[in-house]
Design a protein around this nucleic acid. Structure first.
Lengths: 131, 131
DNA sequence: CCTTGCCTTGACGTTGGCGTCAACGTCTAG
DNA sequence: CTAGACGTTGACGCCAACGTCAAGGCAAGG
C-alpha cells in the first residue's frame, strides 16, 4: 500500500509517517515511480508506535520496540531493551505522579488561603476593628 | 539595584529577567547609562513569579498575579483573576493526575504481561506442548 | 592605558512532533 | 488534453522559557 492508505488505516498523517521514516523508525520500499510502498508489517509497526505514544513514550523510546519487531519477534516488548524502557517509564510516571500530587496540594492550599483572605470565615473572624 | 544583583538575590538568571521584561511582566527603570534599575517591589515580583512557576503556572498565567501586585495589593492572589487561575490550574492538575494514573496502570500491566511472556510463571504454566 | 567585570541589544539554538506551505512529478478518469 | 487526486522533497513555523554566543558600551582599579 502507499502512504495515503497507511495514513488512513492508522489515523496517522502522511507527514507523521514521513517523519517516522526520517527518524529511522519506518523503512519504506520504493516503487518504480519513487512512491513509498508499505506492507502489513509496517502497519503493525505504526500501530505499535501509536500504542506506545498513548502511554507516554517519546518516539525515541519506541525505537527498541520497533527494532524488536523488525528482528522477528511477535511483539515489540519481547526484548530486554523494551522491558527496560517500560521500567524507566514506570519510574518516571511514579516520580511525576508524586511531584504532581505535591503541586496539586500546594495549589489547593494557596486557593484556600486566598479565598479565606478574600471572604473571611463569617463564624471565626480573625480581628476586625470595631469602632 | 542592577540586574546582576537582582539575579543573585533571586537565583534567576539575567537572561530570564530580561525575558520577563520582554513579556511585560517586569518593568525596569533605567539609570543614566542605560542600565536597568530595580527596587524591592521588583524583587517581590520575581519571587512571586518563581513561586508560581514551581506550582506549575506558565509565565503567561503569572500575569494576573503580577498585575495584582502592581495594582497595590499585598499579595498577588488578592484579585479575582488570580483566583480564577488557581481554579483552572487545580482542575488541570486533577485531569493530569487522572490521565497519568491511567497511563501508569497501563504501563504496569504491559510490563507485567511482557515479563510473564518472557519467563512464564513456573507454577501455573499455560500450555507447553509435551512431546 | 589596559584589564576586568558588569551592562547593553540582537539574533539564533534548544526540545518534540509534527503542521503547513511551496513547487513540482505521476497516474487516472472523462 | 486536462483536471484532480495522489505522491515527492525541502524548508520554515510552532510552543515555552530561556541558553548561548556576538559585538560592543561603561566604570573602576592598578
Amino acid at each position: 500500500m502507499r502512504i495515503g492508505e497507511l495514513a488512513q488505516r492508522t489515523g496517522v498523517t502522511t507527514r507523521a509517517l514521513r517523519f517516522y521514516e526520517d527518524q529511522g523508525l519506518l523503512a519504506a520500499r520504493r516503487s518504480a515511480n519513487g512512491y513509498r510502498e508499505y506492507d502489513e508489517d509496517d502497519l503493525q509497526l505504526v500501530h505499535e508506535i501509536q500504542t506506545l505514544q498513548t502511554v507516554g513514550l517519546t518516539l525515541e523510546e519506541t525505537r527498541p520496540f520497533v527494532e524488536c519487531l523488525r528482528s522477528g519477534h511477535e511483539t515489540g516488548d519481547s526484548c530486554a531493551n523494551s522491558i527496560e524502557v517500560y521500567r524507566r517509564k514506570l519510574e518516571e510516571a511514579d516520580a511525576l505522579l508524586a511531584r504532581l500530587g505535591g503541586i496539586r496540594g500546594e495549589l489547593a492550599a494557596k486557593l484556600a488561603a486566598a479565598l479565606a483572605r478574600q471572604a473571611p470565615d463569617p463564624c471565626v473572624v480573625p480581628e476586625s476593628p470595631r469602632p
